[in-house]
Design a protein around this nucleic acid. Sequence first.
RNA 1: GGCGCGUUCGUCUAGUGGUUUAGGACGCCGCCCUCUCAAGGCGGAGAUCACGGGUUCGAAUCCCGUACGCGCUACCA
Length: 491
Amino acid sequence: MINTTPRVRFAPSPTGYLHVGGLRTALYNYLFAKNKDGEIILRIEDTDRNRYVEGAVENLIDTLNWSGIKFDEGPHVGGNYGPYFQSERLNIYHKYADELIEKGKAYRCFCSPERLQKLREEQQRLKLPQVKYDKHCLNLSKEEVEEKLSAGESYVVRLNVEPGQIVKIEDVVRGNVEFNTDNIDDQILIKSDGFPTYHLANVVDDHLMKITHVIRGEEWLSSTPKHVLLYDFLGWEKPVFAHLPLLLNPDKSKLSKRQGDVAVEDYRKKGYLKEALINFVALLGWNAGDDQEFFEMEELIRKFSLERVNKAGAVFNIEKLNWLNAEHIRHKNVDELLPLLKEELQNSKFADKSFSDEYLKLVLEAMHERITFVKDIVEKSFYFFERPTSYDEKIIKKRWKDDTPQLLEKLIDEFEKLDNPNKEDFEKAMRGLAESLEIGVGKLIHPVRLALSGVGQGPGIFDLIFILGKEESIERIKIAIQNIQFDKKDN
RNA sequence: GGCGCGUUCGUCUAGUGGUUUAGGACGCCGCCCUCUCAAGGCGGAGAUCACGGGUUCGAAUCCCGUACGCGCUACCA
């Protein structure tokens, strides 16, 4: 139906932070647009003055920027269809509200909140199938309206919905959905404070901003017929609708703060890579049709299609996110990881220590295939940044034998002989010693690991020794020989 | 209550009437590799396709009903 390149929008309201569900909506819009060389715009729906949160817009934009979703138009990048804050477009909404009133498709309503409240209660008491406004003010004469207007009475503008009609909407993910206007209330379009409601502002802006596809959460499906009515009343071409399945808590209720983190910034703070979060969220409700699950943004753009979006809600499962985070770390090289590690170091107890890029890259090389988060390097392999302050009891019991100190003394002697050794030199020295002593090399390896790291797991032992260096390794072994012997006597 | 949407392993999902003893992934378990931990390889447990009818030679796939879940039902978005 529409042959021009698509224009889509992500239209959050600035109520605090970017929800992961919002991130997915933004992402699907972005992927759809970029797949077709279209444009995506960011529009801030700040029409509810009561819910406005200071700094929310900045936070939203910052988080969106971090995620890698780039907008072609919006408050932060400009564009030809602005302003992109709805609060700055009030006169535009009034113009169209007036047009609707003139056409008889909307009307001013002067009913007090009290009357409305009573009406609702009355209808509920009578157990009427649906609770709706009774069109009381539609019957006001022109003169009565003028009178109230000049008397300064406050009013709202309502959509004039004609009962008994069928409104059909065609949804790319859900197919055809029909609504009977009997179930549709005379929606308020302009509030008494002069601000529009979502419904009016959304339709007007989508039209004026030449939006071709409305891709949004399923919670909007029920109000879509109101939007369709608005397009028809104003004589505008409708966009294509696509309503996305919801993201759910483990108990299948709508994803909420009570059951875990819902803000994108929470995940960012916890150390999730943007690539992993994007990859994960993309797979919640969409798949490429094959077995692939690891995706970079470019590939998502290439393969995305609305036709492959699911209908059912998806549980936000942190286990899979963790796996994807590890996968994305494994796919990155040490140069890409370096700044991330430096950042983690800055936020750790090692912030006042300094390490060369060279050193950190060696650590990364040894660790990046065995971690889930970059910060695991700081927390689980702390021994790259400080000497161990204690030794794992279980490992002592298992690996530290009576003859261990003598063996390690001999190993130190061998290491002392090495001149500017590389990894292989250390290995040759250790294996050579084990051979000449006719012992398994494990009798050396495990105690050395314990001495150097204090724990029983980590990278390959020769990597560990090489990274720490000859002097430091020897020193740590000496310290261990003293302390662990002491511990044993003590027990 | 009304209206709408949904329902395949614990979770994300493949599947669009016969190729299905329902495939993959995460997680879980075991084995291999191995200096440890991961990674990797191999294997395993795990879904009577919500339930009940119907259509059909044949249904997870089409139709109807029921149940359950979710969304909307605001001068919130």
